[in-house]
Write a protein that binds this DNA or RNA. Structure first.
Lengths: 123, 123
DNA sequence: TAAGAATATTCCTTGACAGGAATATAGCGA
DNA sequence: TCGCTATATTCCTGTCAAGGAATATTCTTA
């Protein structure tokens, strides 16, 4: 997670990622489109690769880079844990979840101390 | 977006954010729980504040910090644009979207050059 | 108003990292 | 094999940001 964030938290690297969203591209084309010198593009791509954000496939003497799904999925999963914080619709969901929890408690057996009704965050 | 990512891409700052997920906390408590010295906590909190990730409310001589939803929402929105990349279920969705697009084209008027059927990404 | 608690700020040092320039490496075609 | 193209790597330099220590600021209470 940290590595992913660090990799994305650099302007030109973020631009590269954004560009790769349109599909796999060779180093040269990336540099051309983003007006970056070739060595910097290569270096950023190495960083992105180490972070697992891209993968490379050689095609003749070109190196075609493309995005890898995994880190994005992970980032999304991480954000998901904050959904309560920002998703208004969460309140509706909360009811459903609460209900499911109750159902589980019944199914398993009710030996744990009953959970408090989970008042809406502090304050 | 960049500012948000940069703010999160620092280990201790990320820990602070993770901690604040449990609810608003004063500086001292954060430092205590994360074993960080007070000045560093304050400094990180300033950074997070500048990035809009947290907000502060003074309570006596304490400063209580809490997460702000906006950047998380923005991050989620940004990630959403990559969903095609990582969400397997996207393929189902695509059909629906395609249909909606067609419907809109009909409703408005069909003077734009017909879009190509948007073949599933390159390769 | 003075003292103490909680937090913010400043100054310093150090390490990491990005860009620039030059050079090395890999793969292709003749 | 040679030369060319595409890319990677190295070395250098400057900048920036994080931690440490000391100090300033803010607010409360007696």
């Amino acid at each position: 997670m940290l590595e992913t964030l660090a990799a994305l938290a650099e302007p030109n690297r973020l631009r590269i990622v954004e560009l790769l969203r349109a599909g796999p591209q060779p180093v040269g084309e990336i540099g051309e489109r983003l007006r970056l010198r070739q060595p910097q593009v290569s270096k950023h791509l190495q960083t992105l690769k180490k972070a697992g954000l891209v993968q490379m496939e050689p095609v003749a003497q070109q190196r075609v880079y493309e995005l890898r799904p995994a880190p994005f999925r992970a980032l999304h999963a991480w954000l998901e844990r904050y959904r309560e914080l920002w998703d208004a619709r969460f309140d509706e969901l909360e009811g459903v979840i609460e209900e499911l929890k109750l159902r589980d408690q019944i199914k398993e057996r009710s030996n744990q101390p009953k959970e408090k009704k989970n008042a809406r965050r502090n304050k």
